[in-house]
């Protein structure tokens, strides 16, 4: 189902339809994430992907015209490039551990300790929260700073023009 939505997005020329489809796609992705036990992530994806980004795209389209899209040059070269990349990566997956293999390296490293000791050391049963705020506090500080910087960037980009227009108009 997600594959169908993705293909339709690639083919669709009407940008409004693309944006709404992207919202649907995000909800599907959130469902997949719940199936993969990542409830925290799924919640974020549903709120961010389907809510905030859809609204952002819509308001950006509202500023631009964005309804039509010209037919473009030959799509063969990009297709070949994309498929070649895909083939190379698919060859690479053959060397990766099988799905749900509890002996895989990802389950052997620090994760084990988080699961076993996390609740006792921090007093927080939700390990995702414990790791996010406590064990990887520096990481999260960095992420918050990135979000902060992006916000400042948007303000700088979208506000400067207005000041110039106000002051610079003869």
């Amino acid at each position: 189902m997600m594959a169908v939505v993705t293909v339709v997005i690639a083919r669709q020329r009407n940008l409004f339809a693309v944006v709404i489809l992207f919202g649907i796609y995000s909800f599907l992705m959130a469902t997949v994430l719940v199936a993969l036990d990542a409830v925290d992530v799924a919640m974020t994806e549903a709120a961010v992907g389907a809510g905030i980004s859809t609204i952002l795209f819509l308001s950006a389209l509202h500023l631009g015209k964005g309804i039509e899209m010209k037919p473009l040059h030959r799509p063969f070269l990009p297709l070949v490039v994309a498929l070649a990349t895909g083939a190379a990566l698919a060859y690479g997956t053959l060397g990766l551990p099988a799905f749900s293999d509890s002996e895989a390296p990802i389950h052997q490293h620090v994760a084990k300790r988080y699961v076993e000791e996390g609740a006792r050391e921090t007093g927080v049963p939700n390990i995702v929260t414990a790791v996010l705020a406590s064990y990887r506090g520096y990481d999260t500080l960095g992420e918050v700073t990135v979000v902060f910087t992006a916000g400042i960037g948007v303000i700088a980009l979208l506000r400067r023009v207005r000041g110039r227009r106000r002051g610079g108009k003869p």
Partner: peptide, 21 residues
């Protein structure tokens, strides 16, 4: 495994911020 969840959780929010940029 909780570790990837944490990484991706922050990645989503950062992703939407950069998308807005």
């Amino acid at each position: 495994n909780p570790l990837p969840h944490v990484l991706i959780l922050t990645a989503i929010v950062v992703g939407v911020a950069t998308l807005a940029l």
